[in-house]
Design a protein around this nucleic acid. Sequence first.
DNA 1: CTGAAAGCGCTTACAG
DNA 2: CTGAAAGCGCTTACAG
Lengths: 344, 344
Amino acid sequence: MVKVKKARIQDVALEAGVSMMTVSRVLNQDPKVSDSTRSKVLAVAEQLQYRPNESARRLASNKSYLIGLLYDNPSDAYISQFLLSALKSCRTKGFHLVVDEADKNIEKTLQSVKDLINETKVDGMILLPPVCEQKEIIDCLQDANVPFVRVAPDSQLTISPYICMDDYQAAFDLTEMLIKQGHNKIGHIIGDANQGVSRLRYQGYLDALRSNKINTPPEYIEQGCFTYQSGMIAAKKMLALKDKPSAIFAANDDMAAAVISIAQNQGINVPNDLSVVGFDDTTLATVVWPNITTVRQPIDEMAKLAVSLFTTNKVKDFTDLKSNQLRNILDFKIIQRESSKPIE
Amino acid sequence: MVKVKKARIQDVALEAGVSMMTVSRVLNQDPKVSDSTRSKVLAVAEQLQYRPNESARRLASNKSYLIGLLYDNPSDAYISQFLLSALKSCRTKGFHLVVDEADKNIEKTLQSVKDLINETKVDGMILLPPVCEQKEIIDCLQDANVPFVRVAPDSQLTISPYICMDDYQAAFDLTEMLIKQGHNKIGHIIGDANQGVSRLRYQGYLDALRSNKINTPPEYIEQGCFTYQSGMIAAKKMLALKDKPSAIFAANDDMAAAVISIAQNQGINVPNDLSVVGFDDTTLATVVWPNITTVRQPIDEMAKLAVSLFTTNKVKDFTDLKSNQLRNILDFKIIQRESSKPIE
DNA sequence: CTGAAAGCGCTTACAG
DNA sequence: CTGAAAGCGCTTACAG
């Protein structure tokens, strides 16, 4: 292999006829550089294919260029998608991700977070749900003055930005879509009672019915807990009713998949006799048959945004963020697939 | 927050009454240090809670302490589990993982790998299946003299170690388990024809039947391609037979889940009327009901081992590995769940 | 807006 | 088996 010597900051400086400091300033987007100097440096850097040496930068600046990511449940497709996207974002910006799993024992998790701060010296932390609700962890980060972002949190904080989608609106839209397709007997399986999104999705469902003046018997609403099994139990009850719903909106894909399975088991054709819709657009939605109509969470974008909050130097410290900068609500999308169809 | 000043190599050297170099040698497991010096340094390092500064080490040594990971299909539960485990291993050893997704276009992937080598300067690469079969990539790594490990490869190479489980034996054992439970009408759905593991699992199934002197009609064997849908098609055919199998062994969990769904759809009770077993123990295995009896791949251990091949200094270069060091076959485990049971 | 000097905390290469 | 010197490629802090 022919080894091409990598250009150093010195090489760029020499070639551009400026000092190393000036090059460094340009690269770090310091505004105090004249435009002419800036463009010259940029041109030379481009020409020499200069890439800063990350280790030297880290060592000299005493910044880690490391972002911590704390997650809860490793079996969730959500996590892996978020992770993959975050990893990709980090890579393009010269950062690395230090991933840590929260322990059931909050004390252990806390210790782990402290290690992340003291030893690894992360520049910031990304908190996934539901760890992002843990008061102890939030306090710890705040005490240590480590900026953090919370993803899909249940509660809002004024000290830290959060990233989420509008679960309420998505549930509203999804329900209204069913209504527009002629369904007026729509059941709902509520998600885990301990998660804020369950409440929001349920409320969106209710309000869509209300604004379309549709009355729904209480038997059409069942409490689930986001698991396949809880979906089966709920589906069995709902499909045993004399007056069955023509559509069931399950608060996530796992429960929707369970509904489909139970329906098929009872000889109820999906989607001809029963429309089923889910939420999240996890891999499960396209792995079962018929594929599930669902709401796509913008997970990739969420991860990208979370990372960029740390990698862009715009905001050194989250404490000076204005309230409108704290909110980052991303767009969702309803994905129509084969598990639902209009009433004929 | 009280800032505790981190100990540097200098501090350890001073306290231990040796030079920085000696401390460095001890830390890097250089054998040319007397035992007494070594233990003294180690004791001081421990007492001072010394942690080497990774950036300084990287800069001075011109080693990246970075491991590249190239994967194919992001939707696979397998990938995320591997990733999480590898990430964890890296963290405890002061390494970082640079994750890259292979492109459909081999040229693009190749370029990406070259960037990984030249810009990021990874110390080594982990190749997941099926990218680990790509000759172009293997050649590229070899030319660049970058050591790499292949995970669950189809073919064997003498130039690079590989990590896998014994798919043949696992399939054999799983089939034999069904036989011992009284099943002698056992169907099999073969996996993707392009993947070596499909062949191995199929062969294990066949040999278990053979060694138990069980004849099987050709209708009991269907070609699938590891997808849920292919499993449905195969299951429909097999369950439409007059003389149905009492057990079906699908070559992965997705297809097993499909078999369960079809069976239930036809009023065939799983496991009372039909035992179904899968392979891999992905999340799907416990998400559907009944939970799937399957073979657990030791994914976490595979990832850990892959990382450790680069982090332990035992082998600087994989070219001097002996053939028995190339093979790393890890243990699998059969997980009995509710989708299968003995014949009564 | 720009630059010369010092230093970040390690390791390499050379001595002995 | 051990050590003194030089340097890795950046940035910080100070000048001007």
